[in-house]
């Protein structure tokens, strides 16, 4: 059974058509890369799955349910920006997540904080930007969600932190859950992907398949293939 289904999805911003007739069916238990140039609609699609944006037309089904509070309960979303309330302490944030999300694993979150030597009693505003981003990642990955949506998790992050983020994703990997990662930094991410989708403008699915088979088929990495495919895309 697919964890995510999009049927005839359209999204317009005024006259601008961002997504055009998108049809996607995502199975459970895979790490999938949603790869495409900036502005092709990756973030828009992710936001629509979270309920932050409403499609102009078409349907989205998560685990057989329409978008709403029930789907939010099984989706763990990591946006590009930090959504943390700076006045809170880290422990307050953990309590908050425990309160609203039944699938939040408190012990796992505490352990990850410990590994990074982040004091749970510290206020978020006293932490550096990079540390706050890591706290946010910990909150997202400490949930036992069915669908993880990571929107550009490693953009604007230093290489060491990038490694940490990828390791965290691998470490918290749940074979029954699906992880969808959007990024334009393909080189770092391709080794952890099961499948990939190349998204062109208008949300057009240019190419897709198993990430590892690409190397056998084309003799190239995903990164190299991407550069080729999107060479003439403005």
């Amino acid at each position: 059974m697919s964890i995510l289904e999009c049927r005839s999805l359209y999204k317009n911003y005024g006259n601008k058509r961002v997504l055009e007739n998108m049809n996607i069916s995502v199975p459970a238990g895979k790490i999938i890369g949603l790869l495409g140039p900036n502005g092709c609609g990756k973030s828009t699609l992710i936001k629509m799955i979270c309920g932050l944006l409403v499609p102009s037309s078409g349907e989205i089904w998560v685990d057989g349910m329409p978008i709403g509070p029930q789907t939010n309960g099984i989706i763990s979303y990591l946006p590009e920006r930090t959504y943390l309330s700076n006045g809170m302490k880290v422990i307050d944030l953990i309590d908050y997540f425990c309160d609203f999300y039944r699938d939040f694993d408190r012990k796992r979150a505490m352990k990850m904080l410990q590994d990074l030597m982040i004091d749970p009693a510290s206020r978020l505003r006293t932490l550096s930007k990079g540390t706050r981003e890591k706290v946010q990642l910990i909150m997202v990955m400490a949930r036992n969600a069915k669908l993880y949506l990571l929107d550009e998790p490693i953009a604007g992050v230093d290489p060491a932190s990038r490694d940490y983020i990828l390791q965290t994703i691998l470490q918290n990997y749940n074979p029954e859950a699906t992880v969808i990662i959007t990024t334009h930094l393909i080189h770092d991410i391709e080794r952890i992907l099961d499948e990939f989708v190349f998204l062109g403008f208008g949300g057009e699915i240019v190419m897709g398949g198993n990430a590892d088979d690409i190397r056998g088929q084309y003799g190239k990495t995903l990164d190299e293939l991407f550069r080729e495919v999107f060479k003439y895309v403005q």
Binding site: L52, P69, I75, Y77, L84, F100, Y101
Partner: peptide, 12 residues
């Protein structure tokens, strides 16, 4: 930016 958290909570 907090809205990203608020509106993705499992709350009507």
């Amino acid at each position: 930016d907090e809205g990203y958290l608020t509106f993705t909570l499992p709350v009507k």
